[in-house]
Amino acid sequence: MVEPPSILVEELVKRFGSFTAVDRVSFRIAGGEIFGLLGPNGSGKSTIIRMLCGLLTPTAGRASVVGFNVAKEPEEVRRHIGYMSQKFSLYDDLRVIENLEFFAGLYGVKGTLFKERIGWALEMAGLKGSEALLTGELAGGWKQRLALGCAVLHRPRVVFLDEPTAGVDPLSRRRFWELIHQMSADGVTVLVTTHYMDEAEYCNRLALIDAGRIVAGGSPSEIKRTAIRGDLLLVECAPLGRGLELIKRQPGVLDAAVFGAALHVVVTAAERARIELAAALASAGVEASRIEPIAPSLEDAFVALTGGHPGGSERAQ
């Protein structure tokens, strides 16, 4: 039995002048799925989300959310979605409860549901007892959960989260992802963008996006399995720079990159390369303390697919 997709994106294009921000992107997301768009800053993730929310009009292509065309029926779409933008965008000069009341009012939550949903959002965000605090005084993680609370007051069927945990401490991020999994368990479809690799692992399915194009898609383990053609070796050596130069020139080496204090080297065959690399490094006077095969991470997959790190210069943890 084929369920109609919760979000359907077909050949979606967005151009700003001569710049193509989103280039013929297609994907479909089933109800209750957590779908991640993973890519560096400026790769077009936010633009895709903004088109799906009806904030931007697509240049070409088609997209629908819970069956409504985003370009033709934006008002219907908005009834069914919650959106958390990249930048915190609640009113800092309103109290927690006033922000909730404001957005509940705008979403048309009425009657007994009004108090009930606000109470639920406070509970979910862990803000019970903090209703009277000014929003601007909340810490990052609390603000984030309040923003999520405000975005789901009307029980949307789809939630868009644009870099929801940027700048939030690891503990709060964990807690936030627990909330996302709860929503998903309740049948809510979640589309989330991130450039954190560990967060991407929480998603059911991912699309890796680079320069406006989807370069790979699938579950995190599928991507890791298929992105790298060959075996991956971890090489710890000193000096690192000279080791990298040397390794790149060796036959049987497909790619090599610095990962933290070590090198990740993609080779055609792990066992042969281990011996050859050890010999090559030793003869050049580079001291290798460790050379062993490892399982590729999402970051390795990303580097292999795009030749860059998803977090750009700030490095994904």
Binding site: C53, G54, L55, E75, R78, R79, I81, Y83, S85, K87, F88, S89, L90, Y91, D92, F103, L106, Y107, G108, C150
Partner: peptide
């Protein structure tokens, strides 16, 4: 500050 965008994704006309 971005609140206008947050308001615009609600069903407000």
């Amino acid at each position: 500050i971005g609140t206008l965008e947050q308001v615009m994704v609600t069903p407000i006309r």
